[in-house]
Every structure is written in C-alpha cells, then in structure tokens.
Design a protein around this nucleic acid. Structure first.
Lengths: 131, 131
DNA sequence: CTGTATCCTTATAGATACTG
DNA sequence: CAGTATCTATAAGGATACAG
C-alpha cells in the first residue's frame, strides 16, 4: 500500500475530530478545498492560486483528495490536455468545516481581513454569511 | 529548538484556512482541544484520554498549544506535582471550529459517537485500526 | 506525577529535470 | 498542459530510559 496517510487513531470520544483533521490535513488541502468550493478549476488555475506549492505537491494533494472521494477529476482527452477538478457531493459536505476554519483564520490570524488580501476574501465572506 | 512550526503560506484568498489548519494541526491537538473544551484536565487525565499518544508527544503538543495561547498551564508546587491544563479565552474561540470538525467526523466517518456509525464511508476504515 | 533526554524511523516537502 | 521521476533535506512522530 503506497499510501498510508491515515495514522492509527485511538478512539476516545473526540477521535472524530482527529479523523476529520487527518482528511483535510496536508499542506495544501485546506486551500484547495476552499477554492474548489467556489467552482471547478483546472490544474493550472490551481497552480496560480497556490504559487508556493510545487507541481508535485499539488498533484499529490489532489490525488489524495480524489482518493478520499472529495474531488472529481475530469480528464478531457485533448491536445493540449485539459483536466478539471471539482468537488463531489461528499466534498461539499466539508463546506461548513472549511468555512469554520476560514472564519476563524479571518478573525484571529494576520491572514484575515486586515491585510491586502482582504478584498479578494471579501466575496467569499459574503456567501459564507459572516457570523 | 527554535519553533519553526509555521510553514510559509502563500496568501491567496483561502490562506486563512491553512493558517487555522496549521495551528490545530499536529497529531493530537484536535483531540486535546476537544477534551479541554469540556473542562480542565490534569496531565495524567489527558494521557488516559489519549492512550496512543506517548508522553513525549503529549507534552510537545501541549507546549505548542500553550505557545499559541490556546491553553493555560497551571502548575501547583506540590509533591507529587500537579499540573492542570485548561483553555484560555483565546482557546475557546476555537470552539466552533472544533465542533465543526467533530460534527463532520461523527456524520461521515466511523469514529462517530458510540452507537451511531456512518454507513457509507466505512470503506476507509479497513486500514484505520482494528483493536 | 509530570515531565526531559536520546536515539531512531518514517512522513512530508522541495528542487529539478523529463514526458505524453 | 498536466503531469512523473529522482534525489535530497527536514520535520514529525515513536521507543525507551531517566529525573525533579
């Protein structure tokens, strides 16, 4: 088994928290999911949204998300190739989780609405319903 | 050991998601926070709640949470020693996040609270630890 | 009881080059 | 365009022993 991403978890109550965390853990999964929440994206589009992620990392994270059933990978047999990533229904169930993370980050970290990126984030805020 | 736990993040919108994720990332932080949400706990009590975490790991995770201002460490100068961990106000702001994670885990993984198991996502659990 | 100190293994991540 | 393939570096996590 090439991928043993799911570590052993003891199952005291609260284990569900860790189980969820494991699934969206990984350096870029959170951001990827967040962006896909707003619509289908091509590989290169994601690369632009995550300039610090290497191709390799992006691919790996996408594959893991795909394995976990969160995203769908649509391959168009064309030249040049075109691959689109979108959330599955299962992936959409993560929406409240992602939004909770986003809201907290906005409110309590420097990555929130206090900086230059505030404008770009604002539109997501609107549909999220700030509360 | 300089704490370089916070990796560089690019700041496309959605970075806030990752920023939050980084803070509660770590193998046991989620569970620790969840348990502390319900009240103050001593070191040994936490050990019992996280039987698979080693002392070392538990200590490390607690120290990181303390550094990030999420938990308070109250040391009673006694013999034998007694140390109590509790959430700070800042830590309590994470409550909606933790609860979102918990709820999702309950609904979509087999780690849900005792008595109710998710039906559809039992596929991942083959590897997740029979005990 | 509540930790530290070592030592070791595995996971994660990055750089770079190459390909259908 | 959308990936693989190597290779390497570092970080995370674990086992075990020891200590105030």
């Amino acid at each position: 088994m090439p991928r043993i991403r799911h570590k052993r978890l003891d199952c005291s109550p609260g284990c569900a928290v860790e189980a969820t965390l494991e699934l969206i853990d990984g350096k870029w999964k959170g951001v990827i999911l967040f962006h896909l929440l707003q619509g289908t994206l091509r590989f290169n589009a994601l690369r632009k949204l995550l300039p610090n992620a290497t191709q390799r990392m992006l691919t790996m994270q996408l594959r893991e998300l795909e394995e976990d059933g969160f995203i769908h990978r649509e391959i168009y047999p064309q030249v040049p190739p075109k691959v689109e990533y979108s959330l599955t229904e299962h992936g959409r169930t993560l929406e409240p989780v992602i939004l909770a993370l986003k809201r907290w980050g906005d409110a309590h970290t420097s990555f929130g609405a206090s900086g230059r990126q505030a404008e770009a984030s604002a539109k997501h805020e609107a549909e999220a319903g700030t509360h």
